[in-house]
C-alpha cells in the first residue's frame, strides 16, 4: 500500500479520542459502531464476529501498548483505518501486564488479496514502532494531528 493510499484510509469520523469501554470485545464493538455510523462498515455484527474470532485465535496486540486488530470482510467496501485511544488502558492480552492505550483497526474489503491487506497492516504497525511516534499519536489533540503523524511516519 502506498503512502497516498494510507492517507486515503484516514477519515476524521473514524477517530475515537478516548474509548468509553475497556473490555476487548466491547472496544471492538465501539470502534465498529463508529465506523458503521460513518458509513465505512455495512454489516457491523458480521465484522464484530470476524474480529472477535481473530482475537480468540491469537491476540492482535503488537507490544508497547499498541493493538492492531484487522480483517478483510464483506462488511467493508473500501480500506479504512479506525484510530482509538484509551487513557485508562485496556487489558488486551490475558497475562500481559502492559495495558493497550492505542488501538488501530485496519479494515480491507474482502476482494483485497491477503498480501495486500498485510501490506496495509504492516504500514499501520510500522507507524507505531518508534516511541516518539506513539507518544505523538497518544497526545495529539485532534484527528488532524493524528493524521499528520501517520502521514509523516509513512512518508
Amino acid at each position: 500500500m502506498s503512502t497516498s493510499l494510507l492517507a486515503s484510509v484516514l477519515d476524521p469520523s473514524l477517530f475515537v479520542p478516548d474509548l468509553r469501554t475497556r473490555r476487548k470485545e466491547s472496544v471492538l464493538g465501539e470502534m465498529i459502531a463508529r465506523a458503521h455510523l460513518a458509513g465505512a462498515v455495512r454489516l457491523p455484527e458480521l465484522l464484530r464476529e470476524t474480529l472477535v474470532l481473530r482475537e480468540r485465535a491469537g491476540s492482535t496486540a503488537v507490544g508497547k501498548g499498541v493493538a492492531v486488530p484487522h480483517a478483510r470482510s464483506l462488511s467493508v467496501s473500501e480500506p479504512h483505518l479506525v484510530v482509538a485511544r484509551s487513557r485508562r488502558g485496556l487489558a488486551w492480552t490475558p497475562g500481559d501486564p502492559q495495558p493497550v492505550t492505542l488501538v488501530l483497526l485496519a479494515l480491507s474489503p474482502a476482494e483485497v488479496p491477503a498480501e495486500g491487506h498485510l501490506d496495509f497492516v504492516a504500514r499501520v504497525v510500522g507507524a507505531t514502532r518508534l516511541q516518539r511516534n506513539r507518544q505523538k499519536l497518544l497526545e495529539a489533540e485532534s484527528f488532524d494531528a493524528v493524521a499528520a503523524v501517520l502521514r509523516e511516519v509513512v512518508a
Binding site: 458480521l46 470476524t50 474470532l53 478483510r72 470482510s73 464483506l74 462488511s75
Partner: peptide, 12 residues
C-alpha cells in the same frame, strides 16, 4: 457471509 469471512481468516 460469516463462513466467507472466516475462510479469509483461515487463508491467512
Amino acid at each position: 457471509l460469516q463462513l466467507h469471512d472466516l475462510d479469509l481468516l483461515l487463508e491467512e
